[in-house]
Simulated assay, not measured.
Amino acid sequence: MPNTHRERSRKGLAVRAAVTAAAIAPLLACSAADAASQTITLPPAHADFDYQINKPYEPPAGVEVVSRDHTASPAPGLYNICYVNAFQAQPGAEAEWKDLLLKDADGEIVYDGDWGEAMLDIRTDKNRELIAAKVNAWVDSCADKGFDAVEPDNLDTFDRTDLLSADDAKAMVRLLADHAHQKGLATAQKNTAEFSTMRDETGLDFAVAEECGQWDECGDYAEAYGDHVIVIEYEQEYFDKACSGFADRLSIVMRDRDVLSPGDAGYVREVC
């Protein structure tokens, strides 16, 4: 499903020791759910990237890393990131989540107005565990198919409602990261730049940042994750800005907002 940047609050960030470009090799991640260390592999730093979360297609020449929906298959021979909508329901999928949908004081389902997606209720341990069970089943499928990492989207849902908190989001994504690590998958921090200094709490390994050029956040992600940051811009002005500052370090791509395929009217893909 096409999924682009949502407005979110801007918060200050501190510094976390950077992962060097040489750290393309596997690293060890400790899972709270499993004392045994699992070997995960980060995406290659500063690699040519393509964002294919709408529908998969043959990656352009030179692409080394691709992100695809969990219903798709990985691209042979590349580093593959598996996209899952982890904090909101897909449009029209409310019935799949039943009592796990976030409701307001009037008992009405709370929606993300930009995309018409019902928000998930991550406010309690019980709800988080039930939501994680469903999302982690998708993660298991990603691992079985041969994906290398998982991208849990809408981490920043809490910024779009007063009913959810940052602590709710951190607790939820930690469940997902721990499970992904048990399956040998790296886990991306999707947007939410203020979480970059909280990796001990979230357990996240690298970043997928939409519009960090527009919001002057690319450096914040780079301070926390070194060169293991994938940047997606949707407007030429901000793509050029991101490239001018980070083209020699980060993976940067400009895509159309609907994440279309080659041959579709409106398809856009450009790299620095």
Rank of each mutant, 00 (worst) to 15 (best):
R6G: 08
L13I: 11
A14E: 13
R16F: 12
R16T: 15
A22M: 12
A23E: 11
L27M: 13
C30Q: 09
S31N: 03
A32Y: 07
A33K: 12
D34L: 12
S37E: 12
P43Q: 00
F49V: 13
Y51F: 08
Q52R: 08
N54E: 06
A61D: 15
T71G: 02
A75H: 02
P76G: 07
G77L: 07
Y79A: 04
N80G: 00
N80L: 07
I81W: 00
N85I: 00
F87E: 09
P91E: 12
P91N: 13
E96T: 14
E96D: 14
K103L: 08
D104E: 13
E108C: 09
G116R: 14
E117K: 15
A118Q: 10
A118L: 08
I122Y: 09
I122M: 14
R123H: 11
R123I: 11
T124G: 10
I131T: 13
A132S: 15
A132G: 07
K134R: 15
A137D: 14
V139L: 01
D140S: 10
S141L: 12
S141N: 09
C142E: 02
K145Y: 09
E151G: 04
D153Y: 09
D153I: 05
D153H: 07
N154R: 07
L155Y: 03
L155H: 01
D156M: 03
T157Q: 01
D159H: 06
T161V: 04
D162C: 08
D162T: 10
L164C: 05
L164M: 02
A166Y: 00
D167M: 03
K170P: 02
L176A: 07
H179E: 13
Q182P: 03
L185Q: 01
T187M: 06
T192H: 02
S196F: 04
E201N: 02
T202W: 06
F206S: 05
V208R: 02
C212N: 04
G213D: 06
Q214L: 15
W215F: 15
W215T: 06
C218D: 10
G219I: 08
A224P: 01
G226Y: 08
V229P: 05
V229R: 06
V231F: 03
E233P: 11
Q236D: 13
E237V: 12
Y238L: 01
D240E: 15
F246C: 13
A247E: 06
R249D: 08
R249K: 14
L250C: 12
I252E: 03
V253N: 00
V253E: 02
M254S: 06
D256H: 13
R257T: 11
L260P: 03
P262N: 02
G263P: 00
A265E: 10
A265H: 02
G266R: 04
Y267M: 04
